[in-house]
């Protein structure tokens, strides 16, 4: 949390998200964090601790009830919906726990979706880039397949390829290996690590696998919607003020 605002990609300041309702639910609270360039960050925590919720907020899929999420130093809560969508398209790649590919489209078409939505490349270049991304993840033979014709690991790799479609500087991944066997899981993890080491991107990945988390640069632990300080991570879990 000491990175200067100048080179921070994502910054959260006092972010709170409360789901309104008869009994309001606090998803996350008092989140202060900074994701800088070329970082590999793990978010860990027990099930239901708010990891996904936090990632949605950082990925601009959700809006904080209070506080502010800044992308490259720019506040996002007062953006128009269109501008927020554009920021998401160009700056943030998102990988969901479930692949969330469009079922009627092939792997190639799924990877092309964000490019077509952004419309920055000519169609031929989009096709080439999508094919190149899929090839680099060992999916050369599956380019023309639809999601239901692929295995879970293959789908998740397509999802990672899709998150990189518009070459965003940061990728947010929500338990990308959660539903995979250990071999596929290792494959996807290596791809994410290469994004940081080879392509110089930042990756924020939610995982409940502490071994994987240990192999990342930085770890944050969430308990009951609050971040536990690194120093206390070893054991102490303090009751979160809800």
């Amino acid at each position: 949390m000491n990175a200067s605002a100048g080179n921070s990609l994502i910054e959260a300041r006092g972010v709170i998200r409360i789901l309104p309702g008869i009994v309001p639910v606090t998803l996350v609270h008092d989140i202060d964090l900074t994701i800088g360039n070329n970082e590999f960050v793990a978010i860990t925590g027990p099930s239901g601790s708010g990891k996904s919720s936090l990632l949605y907020l950082l990925g601009l899929l959700d809006m904080p009830t209070a506080g502010e999420v800044l992308i490259r130093g720019r506040a996002t809560t007062d953006m128009e919906e269109d501008e927020r969508a554009m920021t998401r398209l160009a700056t943030l790649g998102f990988v969901f726990q479930f692949h969330f590919l469009l079922p009627e489209f092939t792997a190639l078409e799924n990877v092309m979706l964000p490019m077509r939505a952004l419309g920055a490349l000519p169609p031929v270049a989009m096709r080439e880039r999508a094919a190149m991304l899929l090839e680099s993840f060992g999916l050369t033979d599956h380019i023309g397949k639809r999601p239901d014709q692929m295995s879970g690991g293959q789908r998740q790799r397509v999802a990672v390829a899709r998150s990189l479609a518009n070459d965003p500087p940061v990728v947010l991944a929500d338990e990308p290996t959660g539903s995979l066997d250990s071999q596929s899981s290792e494959q996807v993890f290596r791809i994410l690590r290469d994004l940081v080491e080879v392509r110089s991107k930042s990756v924020v990945a939610v995982t409940h696998d502490l071994d994987l988390a240990a192999r990342m640069d930085r770890r944050m632990q969430l308990i009951d919607g609050g971040i536990v300080d690194g120093a206390q991570m070893a054991g102490a879990s303090r009751a979160a003020p809800v």
């Binding site: 919906e81 269109d82 969508a85 398209l89 969330f100 079922p103 979706l113 939505a117």
Partner: peptide, 16 residues
């Protein structure tokens, strides 16, 4: 509904 959520989460706006 799920596809719409995917499209919107990718960055397609309401109008599209």
């Amino acid at each position: 509904a799920r596809d719409i959520a995917i499209l919107k989460s990718l960055g397609l706006n309401e109008r599209t």
